[in-house]
Computed example of a mutant assay.
Amino acid sequence: MADDHTHVQDFFTARAAAWDTRFPDDGPAFALAVSALGLRAGDTVLDAGCGTGRALPALRAAVGPRGTVVGADLTAAMLESAARAGRGRSGVLLQADAARLPLRARALDAVFAAGLISHLPQPGPGLAELARVVRPGGLLALFHPIGRAALAARHGRTLTDGDLRAEPNLRPLLARSGWRLASYTDEETRFLAVAERTH
Score class of each variant (00 low, 15 high):
41 A>L: 10
99 A>F: 00
105 A>M: 03
112 F>V: 01
47 D>H: 10
178 G>K: 10
49 G>N: 05
186 D>T: 09
85 A>T: 01
54 R>C: 01
100 R>K: 09
67 G>M: 07
88 G>S: 11
117 I>L: 15
141 A>K: 04
161 D>L: 12
70 V>Q: 08
28 P>V: 03
7 H>G: 02
62 A>H: 04
30 F>M: 12
42 G>Y: 07
89 R>F: 01
104 R>T: 10
158 T>V: 10
159 L>Q: 12
132 R>I: 12
188 E>P: 04
42 G>V: 10
43 D>I: 08
70 V>H: 07
1 M>D: 12
94 L>F: 02
59 L>N: 10
37 L>I: 11
119 H>Y: 02
32 L>H: 14
151 L>D: 08
17 A>P: 01
90 S>I: 08
96 A>T: 14
198 T>C: 11
157 R>Q: 13
149 A>F: 00
126 G>P: 10
136 P>H: 08
115 G>T: 05
27 G>R: 13
91 G>Y: 06
31 A>G: 07
120 L>S: 02
16 A>H: 00
23 F>C: 00
96 A>I: 14
92 V>N: 03
28 P>A: 10
37 L>S: 13
68 T>I: 13
187 E>I: 15
180 R>C: 05
1 M>R: 14
125 P>E: 13
5 H>Y: 03
51 G>T: 05
194 V>C: 03
127 L>F: 04
104 R>W: 04
193 A>V: 11
48 A>Q: 09
75 T>A: 02
152 A>G: 05
99 A>P: 11
157 R>T: 01
55 A>D: 06
152 A>T: 01
96 A>R: 11
